[in-house]
Design a protein around this nucleic acid. Sequence first.
DNA 1: TACTGTTTGTGAAAACATTCACAGCGTGAG
DNA 2: CTCACGCTGTGAATGTTTTCACAAACAGTA
Lengths: 221, 221
Amino acid sequence: MARQNEGNPRTSDKTIGRLSLYRRLLNVLQGEGHRHVFSHQLAGIAGCTAAQVRRDLMAVGYSGSPIHGYEVVRLIESIREFLDAPGGQGVALVGVGNLGKAILAYFTGRRPNLRIVAAFDNDAHKVNRVIHGCHCHAMADLPQVVKKLGIRLAIITVPANAAQEVAEGLSRVGVRGLLNFAPVRLRVPPNVYVEDIDMTMSLEKVAYFARLAGAEKEGKP
Amino acid sequence: MARQNEGNPRTSDKTIGRLSLYRRLLNVLQGEGHRHVFSHQLAGIAGCTAAQVRRDLMAVGYSGSPIHGYEVVRLIESIREFLDAPGGQGVALVGVGNLGKAILAYFTGRRPNLRIVAAFDNDAHKVNRVIHGCHCHAMADLPQVVKKLGIRLAIITVPANAAQEVAEGLSRVGVRGLLNFAPVRLRVPPNVYVEDIDMTMSLEKVAYFARLAGAEKEGKP
DNA sequence: TACTGTTTGTGAAAACATTCACAGCGTGAG
DNA sequence: CTCACGCTGTGAATGTTTTCACAAACAGTA
Ligand SMILES: NC(=O)c1ccc[n+]([C@@H]2O[C@H](COP(=O)([O-])OP(=O)(O)OC[C@H]3O[C@@H](n4cnc5c(N)ncnc54)[C@H](O)[C@@H]3O)[C@@H](O)[C@H]2O)c1
Ligand SMILES: NC(=O)c1ccc[n+]([C@@H]2O[C@H](COP(=O)([O-])OP(=O)(O)OC[C@H]3O[C@@H](n4cnc5c(N)ncnc54)[C@H](O)[C@@H]3O)[C@@H](O)[C@H]2O)c1
């Protein structure tokens, strides 16, 4: 089936994000009973242009038909093949505080491909308890648990001043991708990918552009 | 002082985000007693290039000295003038669930310029209670509370199927900026700015690029 | 004074991302 | 059958963001 193009110009960050979005939208469409979808329909619900959708889909190597558009099931499958690791990947969460707990609650029993399989904290009150269906380990056990479960991805929700240290510990035991919520720029080896979610920054962006939209002209840039 | 350039080519999204980041880093530097900073130093801790920093700073209209670099205090002040609304802005949070509570806990008593001044939920158990220092109102009171407090920004942390309705309600009563955590593309009037934080998408991005970094070469693109 | 070393601000180039626009194709109408 | 239609996939054009590279400024040094 869908052959992911090989010696290609590295698929961009933005495209990967949108593929993830398309997949979610396609799942909704599938649930509503749609068998086929056209690029302009997907674009409409994704909030981008039809050309953008088609360009992004080039990366996954599944071609639609000019007559029926894309077959929903097959497109979902092709995106899955392109994005997901075969067999799924376990994720660790470090820092079971307010945010960490919310994330555990949210991801528990959700996407079967990416599931949080272990939590870690240095607070004795949390260690060895099951929180939202996930066992919380002591930090000292991190190396062995990560190795045992073959974990290569982690979510960091510890306070800012602990994040660098945690990131280093994770990198050292073979974790290759970090989703970081701490408002700190992590320094990691070049073979570790870091994605930051910085709520304060996002909120300030909203404040700035909302002010522009109110005071000057209008619209989202 | 620092004159924000006026008839300028609309400052980009990305630049605004980085200015917010620079400001936070500068506050740390100031706390450590630094008086001056060079673009390459700021770049080092921000994780970008010196040229990028200088280019971004052009937007705020504060010039550094080739000898001492940028004066930390004055640069913070210039960024503040450029980004922030004078007098600060109140923010509403709608949906006091797991994530909403974590966010309330985090932002309470934090940045004085952007503070959460009201929370809303439709769950009778939460209405009229004070949660992490913030009063939770009924949804029915949203219009009057928003008007009374002059709220123009909101954070949406309701379930996906309620998000569109909530966004419309907020737009209708004059809110101009939304920070949306629900995994849904909101349709709002063109004078409302929406910023999405989509954790699932971010995590899938991490998974994809971590896999590349592991399997192929290395490094964060 | 003249020279060195360092940094800023910014035009110009390069890299990257999005959109345009159209050939090609299969379908269904006539 | 022939034609017109509407869509895909993609080369080329356009738009945006980042990086390069250098003139200008000036403290320190001798
Ligand atoms: N809560 C939010 O909405 C929010 C918003 C933006 C950013 N953040 C960031 O997310 C992070 C977590 O926020 P939070 O509100 O959940 O904080 P929190 O204090 O509620 O939770 C932090 C958790 O990390 C644990 N921890 C502390 N040091 C540790 C270490 N060295 N190793 C392992 N665990 C450790 C603590 O025991 C605690 O359980 C912070 O960096 C914060 O800046 C949170
Ligand atoms: N928790 C997470 O880590 C996480 C991660 C990614 C995305 N999200 C998204 O964030 C949103 C909130 O997640 P959560 O885990 O806090 O969910 P939650 O169920 O814990 O909280 C939702 C809250 O919204 C309230 N609510 C429901 N319908 C409402 C309405 N019409 N008007 C006002 N309030 C209403 C509920 O009473 C509840 O308090 C969801 O859209 C979820 O998809 C959450």
